[in-house]
Nucleic acid binder design. Structure first.
Lengths: 222, 222
DNA sequence: TAAAAAAGTGAGTAATCACTCACTTTTAAT
DNA sequence: ATTAAAAGTGAGTGATTACTCACTTTTTTA
């Protein structure tokens, strides 16, 4: 069960604390629960109100429409999903350091995203399910990827390529390969299945090895 | 635009030709279009009837409920998606031959799935979007994977491992790695984006190389 | 502490929902 | 040609939908 503090930190994007009344937090909590479980279209505002112990009018006092309620949940969720909290930590310390190490870089990235996914399964389910139907959500994704993620990753991978530490593939192919492998693993182990992952370290090691060997230049061997 | 012949072959699972009236085909066509575009829950039966040029009662003459209509579309779709039409061709000729070649095997698999996805983007969109909300759909998936796909693939990969042609990873990790890479590529290039893939052969080659090198045992080099 | 602003309420509304059913039309079987 | 079955119809059903609004309660501000 989510509490007010969780909702609060979820909506916090620019570090400015978000002020929430108890009822507003209850609305968001139940909206997230139901959107994740039944989907946005199949969840009624009356059901959210009932579960949150709130009059239906209260929802529309805070959110002009049902879609505004969805976007209030999804937008900060995407920001936190796509732009890791640890951005400074990782991009500064690991990513921008001279001694770029693909393995170490991957390890930080994977563990960070695993811990985020673990804490936000419902939110991620909502985003995955609704992104197909709402162009606004797609736009948020596109903006973040194009302006923040892609340029940084591209720069670093190109640098690795120039140093001969990476296969000479088109950069987009390399990025897709890494993302497919990592996200495929996370999706399978933390979203699709529900049993806890026991030997997490071992499994992450496998993923890293697969990517590492896949992207290894032909003339060397790690 | 879909025609009756397309719908007919889509529903054909056991090679027995499915008999369809014009109106029934129109209902299925418009249902697929709308479910793919707006989602199952956000599509009304009245809208389907209107677009198909049919009375709303006609839908319920053929399908007892809206959900039955969805399942009539989705179930054969999953069967065709998960159990490749070329099953005999591939599994017999390539998969069960003594000279097992991971690269050739992957190539046949990838091209086959690409051509299927190209022809059935809408159907695949529906399945991806609705699988989360309908346990029946999940069960269909699970059954097919557990009984048909997993055992065959497992057997072949283990055989490759024993011959020293594959990394000694847990078999599930290898399967997930291959599926993530292949499906990640197909999803990105044929479902997520709409522009036609120009240098398809080249891109498929990259995917195969990445998987091949990723799964290459440590002591040899391809 | 008085006034203003914000939060919360719940009965009410028009529209839409999936679905029914008595009926007509078309097709297939004898 | 007659009959029976299947296909198709469309007005009608009660339930539910997102949302409104006049009103009360609580909180904040001056």
């Amino acid at each position: 069960m989510m509490d007010k503090a969780y909702i609060q930190q979820l909506l916090e994007v620019d570090k400015e604390p978000v002020k929430l009344t108890e009822k507003k937090a209850a609305i968001l909590t139940k909206a997230i629960e139901n959107f994740a479980k039944y989907g946005y279209a199949a969840t009624s505002t009356s059901e959210i109100a009932k579960q949150a112990g709130v009059a239906e009018g209260t929802i529309f006092r805070h959110y002009p429409s049902k879609k505004d309620l969805l976007m209030a949940i999804v937008k900060p969720g995407i920001l936190q999903l796509a732009v890791p909290y640890f951005a400074e930590q990782m991009i500064e310390e690991v990513f921008h350091s001279e001694e770029v190490d693909l393995e170490g870089l991957l390890r930080v990235f994977i563990y960070n995203r695993i811990s985020f996914v673990k804490k936000n399964v419902q939110m991620i389910r909502i985003i995955l399910q609704e992104v197909a139907f709402h162009p606004e959500i797609q736009q948020v994704f596109k903006d973040i990827f194009v302006t923040k993620i892609y340029p940084t990753v591209k720069e670093r991978l190109e640098s690795l390529q120039q140093k001969g530490k990476l296969k000479e593939l088109p950069i987009d192919t390399s990025i897709r390969f890494i993302l497919s492998t990592v996200l495929g693993f996370i999706f399978h182990r933390y979203i699709l299945t529900t049993e806890p992952v026991l030997n997490e370290e071992q499994e992450v090691d496998y993923v890293i090895t697969l990517i590492f060997h896949g992207l290894q230049p032909n003339h060397t061997k790690g």
